[in-house]
Simulated assay, not measured.
Amino acid sequence: MKTILYLTDLYYKANGRKYYEEDLFITDRLRAHFNILIGHPQQAIRFLEHSDLVVFRNTGPVIGYQEYFQKFLEAVKDHEVKTFNSFDGKADIKGKQYLIDLTKNGFPVIPTINSAEAIDQLGHCDKYVLKLKNGADSIGMKILNKKDLLKSDLENKLIQPFIDFKYEVSFYYLNDEFQYALYAPDKAKRWELTEYEASEQDLDFAEKFISWNGIQQGITRVDACRQPDGSLLLVELEDLNPFLSIDLLNAEKREEFINALIHSLKKII
């Protein structure tokens, strides 16, 4: 059997999510088809030569080990190791600059700027959201009024209007194929998710970003918010290590997803 190096941080504490449960479930299913090495993301380089494929999963925000992650990317390239996700995306794997780029190009995304001089582009706002340009998992995020925002250090930050949305919804894709959708009916409880029946219009929205990103292989989560007028805006495009929440799926959908994942990994190696 081929060998997979499955990278995860089983001890990372995330609000509303249990990384270890999800990854232990997935690796238990994979081991019938592959030899599985479970490794920590900050100890990955030494095991690359023993692996046919690296599966980069619930590793936590790479902002906590950015220097090692860059060395890891270089080692993957030098050793010509296949990875899942592939590291050719243009979204969260490269930070949040893509939100500014998508805004400029007229995509349906929460309007995003990175300077006080451009703040009028956001229109009138009572509150603003300030985010780290290389942030993840809400690390460093602040909600500020305009006065406090303009007094803040805006270097390497993003500015967005604070939007009073109805709910958040996420669309999960394996490669470029839609798998399932989940949403948080109570917007104050982001990770209390339930299954969501995606409409044709919803998928048209999500697939704009899947097509734009164009990763070769991997799992992508399209996070969006539903506005009061019914339209969707992109919150973020997670193309590095999206949490899957597969424990919330019904048994049939969960089985379909796992089988599709196994098939995809076999096809790569």
Rank of each mutant, 00 (worst) to 15 (best):
D164W: 06
Q217V: 00
A184C: 01
R221C: 14
E168Y: 04
P185C: 06
F243K: 00
I159E: 02
Q227C: 12
Y180D: 04
F171S: 01
D204N: 10
W212G: 11
Q160Y: 03
D202V: 02
E192C: 00
S152Y: 06
L232F: 11
M141R: 12
K142G: 03
G218N: 07
G214W: 04
E197I: 15
K146N: 03
K133D: 11
K151A: 12
R190K: 13
R190Q: 09
G218S: 04
W191Q: 10
A224L: 03
K166Q: 11
W191R: 09
E195Y: 08
E155R: 14
I215W: 11
A184F: 03
L182Y: 08
Q217F: 04
L233A: 06
S245N: 10
E177Y: 07
D176Q: 13
S211Q: 14
I219L: 05
Q160C: 02
S138D: 04
L234V: 04
K131I: 02
A184S: 13
K189E: 14
K157Y: 07
L132V: 02
G140A: 07
G230I: 09
G135C: 13
V222M: 06
I210C: 01
P242V: 07
L182I: 06
K151G: 00
E168R: 07
A181S: 14
L154H: 10
Q160L: 00
Q227G: 00
L193H: 09
G140V: 09
D239P: 08
K133M: 15
D247H: 15
P185N: 08
L149S: 02
K146C: 04
L193E: 05
A188C: 03
P161Q: 10
Q201H: 13
G135V: 06
N213E: 06
K151T: 04
N175A: 05
L240Q: 08
